[in-house]
Design a protein around this nucleic acid. Structure first.
Length: 482
DNA sequence: TCGGAGTTGATTGT
DNA sequence: ACAATCAACTCCGA
């Protein structure tokens, strides 16, 4: 049967390696390429900020232009997801909806709702895995039903699976010619909106442009450059892709993955609730130039280096402020162009030593860590121009400069730039003790409750935390001796 | 049960 | 620049 198909673009705004779209073209008489712009969903579920709105619209514009070149078009329909699907299925006599399978709970729910509509209105739903390298379900099975919680173990399982599948072939104009494009007039009616149409502030423009063409171009550039300087996993691009896969896999099988409460892999910590301190971190007013430069670049450009993310995250959580990783995650979600449900939450748990990473004594120093790679502080001078005239020896800790030197630099600390909001040594020592305490308490609680474990995830957690694996803490050693 | 390893700490010494 | 040491965590595999 030749279908009348809506292909729903969600995360994968691309034409290359798009198995669901290819399947749509091969099985249909007419294909409607649709992006549903659900503003409430984007704001209240995806939490995207202005930079990400621009990036999204650029990506849609690029997708539209590529589809046009192949003789098709992109229909950007604004409205609430389900009602848009319901209306247009009926209007266009749709018999099939195709889409990428995603692992975020809200995208899974969306797919389930579309399937429900399909049963009600009589259309088929075809979802194919397009966003990860492997079928994460297979990885879970090979690991005995639970996600691997270390990268090494994860890689061992991938070794059993072999190389990931090669991408599906590129789409051509012939693929599109074999079925009809949507009716004339629809493309004009459902164009890509401009930022001003959505009241997105025009001044917030990142130097990074969105879109598949731009992304592929950047990838090629990177691969060409990489030929000179080799790097190996886990640091290489390949290694980074596998880290992405790792967090996708764990997230897909962990309830409440983006929260602490009810998240079985996450250490339960009573973080401070301090709106004022959180605000200072968010708005680049910590008084530590290295941290504030990072937060400024994040806000202005929507991208910061991997290690900068580490430094900022450690500072907010276990390092200095003892504020929940969930708060930091939300800020990154709003501001990072590459924010991703699984990777963002996974890394925040990592950096806060809530999961995956446990060497909590290793705390980034907000002064020295940056200075090691950038002793002149060029990065700080670029993003915090108020500090740019300080001599290099003060640029990471300008409050140590004398009054005279501050005057000379044209920046008085406490007036033009804030004093550091904490004494790093004091704060990090204190937090380290808190962390030690939390862990000792947590193991004791886990032991007490491990007998009434019920669901498999709980059981695994409790097994992991059981006596045999209990670290020799001071408390445990004392019990032993007594 | 124990020792080694863990995607990138800090400090001190060579 | 590189290595040893610090103080010390959990996970994994032998």
């Amino acid at each position: 049967m030749r279908h009348h198909t809506i292909h729903l673009f969600r995360k994968g705004l691309r034409l290359h390696d798009n198995p669901a779209l290819l399947a749509a073209l091969q099985s249909s008489e007419v294909v409607y390429p649709v992006y549903i712009l659900d503003r409430a969903f984007m704001t209240s579920v995806m939490h995207i900020g202005a930079l990400r709105w621009h990036f999204l619209l650029q990506s849609l514009e690029d997708l539209r232009s590529s589809l046009c070149q192949l003789g098709s078009c992109l229909l950007v329909i604004q409205g609430e997801y389900e009602s848009v699907v319901r209306d247009h299925v009926q209007k266009w006599n749709i018999t099939q909806v195709t889409l990428d399978e995603e692992m975020e709970p809200f995208y899974k729910e969306m797919e389930a709702n579309i399937r429900g509509l399909g049963e009600e209105l009589g259309f088929e739903v075809l979802s194919l895995m397009g966003h990860s390298l492997y079928n994460t379900q297979r990885i879970l099975e090979l690991n005995g039903g639970t996600p691997p919680l270390t990268y090494k173990r994860f890689l061992r399982i991938l070794a059993l699976l072999g190389d990931p599948e090669v991408p599906v072939r590129n789409l051509t104009a012939e693929d599109f010619q074999r079925c009809s494009p949507p009716e004339l007039g629809l493309a004009e009616r459902y164009g890509v909106p401009l930022p001003t149409d959505l009241k997105i502030p025009p001044e917030s423009i990142s130097p990074w442009r969105g879109g598949e063409s731009e992304g592929l171009h950047r990838l090629e550039q990177h691969l060409a450059d990489q030929a000179k300087h080799h790097s190996l996993p886990p640091v290489s691009l390949q290694g980074q892709l596998l880290w992405r896969e790792f967090f996708y896999t764990v997230a897909s099988a962990t309830p409440n993955f983006t929260k602490m409460a009810g998240n079985p892999i996450c250490l339960q910590i009573r973080w401070y609730e301090d709106a004022e301190r959180l605000h200072r971190w968010k708005t680049a007013q910590t008084g530590f130039p290295w941290i504030d430069a990072i937060m400024t670049q994040l806000r202005q450009e929507g991208w910061i280096h991997h290690l900068a993310r580490h430094a900022a995250a450690c500072f907010l959580t276990r390092g200095d402020l003892w504020i929940s990783w969930e708060e930091g995650m939300k800020v990154f979600e709003e501001l990072l162009l590459d924010a991703d449900y699984s990777i963002n939450a996974g890394n925040w748990m990592w950096l806060s030593a809530s999961a995956f990473f446990h060497q909590y004594t290793r705390i980034f120093c907000p002064v020295r860590f940056g200075r090691r790679t950038d002793p002149e502080g060029e990065y700080i001078r670029k993003y915090l121009p108020i500090l740019k005239n300080f001599p290099s020896k003060y640029i990471y800790e300008p409050w140590t400069a004398s009054e005279e030197e501050q005057k000379q630099a044209g920046c008085i600390i406490g007036r033009d730039y804030p004093f550091p909001m904490v004494d790093h040594k004091e704060a990090s020592d204190h937090n380290l003790q808190l962390m030690k305490q939390v862990r000792e308490e947590q193991y004791r609680t886990a032991q007490l409750t491990r007998d009434d474990a019920d669901d498999p995830m709980e059981m695994k957690l409790k097994r992991d935390l059981s006596e045999e694996n209990l670290p020799k803490t001071k408390a445990a050693r004392m019990t032993e001796q007594a």
